[in-house]
Amino acid sequence: MAHRHDTDHGSHMSALEARVRALETVLTEKGYIDPAALDVIIDTYETKIGPRNGAKVVAKAWLDPSYRDALQENATEAIASLGFTGRQGEHMVALENGDGVHNMVVCTLCSCYPWPVLGLPPVWYKSAPYRARAVQDPRGVLADFGIALPEETDIRVWDSTAEIRYLVIPERPDGTEGWSEEQLAALVTRDSMIGTGLALAPEAAGA
């Protein structure tokens, strides 16, 4: 080794980082992973997969009754037909809001979530309070998100598993007749597809 010039200051590495490096080292060494492939995976989830995918599914369902039927029939296939496939999206179920029903999704066990259409879950979805309260007090959770639904609305909470992932199809906002798929997709928020929000009103789109 070369002589050390800087005897006082080495580089900083946290214990967590060291544990992750150890995993990467041993898995590379044993041929389980390709370090270059890791970067591709990370880039995909940071930049390519996110709630805009789900928003396209919802907008298409609002516009095209046959697509809406296909989504009810077999959501996994209907979603894959738009090119959204992959991990944690193998068995999708679409939950349509409307007719006095509001659907809301949680994973009480950990954080199962439909990645191909929504990306990775937001921080609050993974938190203990949400996981516990979504089932016990869905109206309270909705109130925290600023959503008040009529007394008579039937709120249904769906617990995701490793096998089944849900996508909520929010109600199409009034005043959007004649809107294009792209315009409609801009009204579909991530939260509206988890059921902790509603689709935006046309005024909010800033169009």
């Binding site: 992750v20 995993l23 390709d34 492939a37 890791l38 995976i41």
Partner: peptide, 8 residues
């Protein structure tokens, strides 16, 4: 990195 390792 942890996420990508798990996926792999």
């Amino acid at each position: 990195k942890v996420f990508a390792l798990q996926q792999s």
